[in-house]
Design a protein around this nucleic acid. Structure first.
Length: 320
DNA sequence: TCCTGTTTAACTCCAG
DNA sequence: CTGGAGTTAAACAGGA
């Protein structure tokens, strides 16, 4: 409906929820984490719609960051000046938009505490063990905020209780990775992106490890509006894919990963995608396209996966 | 004082 | 229709 004309709907509300916008921003960053102000910047750079009423949507965005367990706060190291903490995606939140909609997730990602185990191996844990600044009130430490779950042992302070899902599973603590774990779907070469569901790049970089630049580009291909380069950081406003919001017209460029042939287009499906038919006609065997899109591998709802019943298959796997 | 975060609460909207 | 996800408003605390 929108006229391909000019600035037709460039100022229309993008088909993304604040959660997806935020995730997009974070994923696009080289270290997979951003301070609040940069998340704002990212969004404003690409979506004209959000250049107005900033007070309103930014408040909503902050609300989302605090309220949703899929976002975790990472304190700045003393050598990293600036305001506020960094925000990253919870290592286990996996693909929150597996259903293909960037507007509405199937289920909210919630962290259960069960902190112990499972987390030790994670670099993140290293980080926290070594740079643990106690921030009262922080999400991860104050799980008490969420009624559904009993209060955390509090011993961990603000630490992320990685792995713990609704008490159902302690999530791949050791070696087990459920069939839909990202790594299993994607292939090891991407473990950097979501290794074991871990946004390694963020922690790695944060900890001083070198972070392969290509990792970020891989991720960026998941989002139609995410440029491969983090311009928002460099101050150079991105000529945003000018308008056209993905669902309708997606410039094929960027949606495919040159690496190993065509893969699933990262097209945000407006409403309810039919698993049986791929978002992109003609694209079927994505088996190879280990790449990005699948990356949307879902790990999010353990309940969904374990709950036997529906036995939801990752949409990507259904493409046929 | 402004920014960052956290919470609560009341909406709207959509999938089941 | 209902429950849950997402949005918006708003109070409030702490820090730079």
């Amino acid at each position: 409906m929108p006229r391909p004309g000019k600035n037709s709907y460039s100022d229309q509300k993008p088909p993304y929820s604040y959660i997806s916008l935020t995730a997009m921003a974070i994923q696009n960053s080289t270290d997979k984490m951003l301070p609040l102000s940069d998340i704002y910047k990212f969004i404003m750079d690409r979506f004209p719609y959000y250049r107005e009423n900033t007070q309103r949507w930014q408040n909503s965005l902050r609300h989302n960051l605090s309220f949703n367990d899929c976002f975790i706060k990472i304190p700045r190291r003393p050598d990293q000046p600036g305001k506020g903490s960094f925000w990253a995606l919870h290592p286990d939140c996996g693909d929150m938009f597996e259903n293909g909609s960037f507007l509405r997730r199937r289920k909210r990602f919630k962290v259960l505490r069960a902190e112990h185990m499972a987390c030790k191996s994670s670099p993140m844990m290293h980080y926290f063990h070594h740079h643990h600044h106690h921030h009262p009130g922080s999400k991860l430490g104050a799980a008490s905020a969420h009624p559904e779950h009993p209060v955390a042992p509090a011993g961990v302070g603000r630490l992320p209780h990685f792995q713990s899902y609704g008490g159902i599973t302690c999530a791949q603590p050791g070696g087990f990775k459920h069939p839909f774990a990202i790594e299993n779907i994607i292939g090891r070469d991407y473990k950097g992106v979501v290794a074991g569901g871990l946004p390694l790049t963020s922690v790695m970089h944060h900890l001083g490890y070198p972070v392969p630049p290509q990792l970020s580009s891989v991720v960026s291909s998941m989002w139609p509006h995410v440029g491969v380069l983090s311009e928002s950081m460099s101050g150079v406003p991105v000529p945003a894919p000018s308008s056209e919001y993905a669902p309708f017209s997606v410039s094929a460029k960027g949606l495919y990963h040159s690496a190993s042939g065509p893969t699933l287009p990262a097209v945000p499906v407006p409403i309810k995608p039919t698993p049986s038919l791929g978002p992109m006609p003609g694209l079927t065997g994505l088996q190879t396209g280990p790449t990005q899109l699948c990356s949307l591998g879902s790990v999010m709802e353990k309940s969904d996966l374990l709950d036997g019943k529906g036995t939801p298959l990752h949409p990507a796997l259904l493409l046929s």
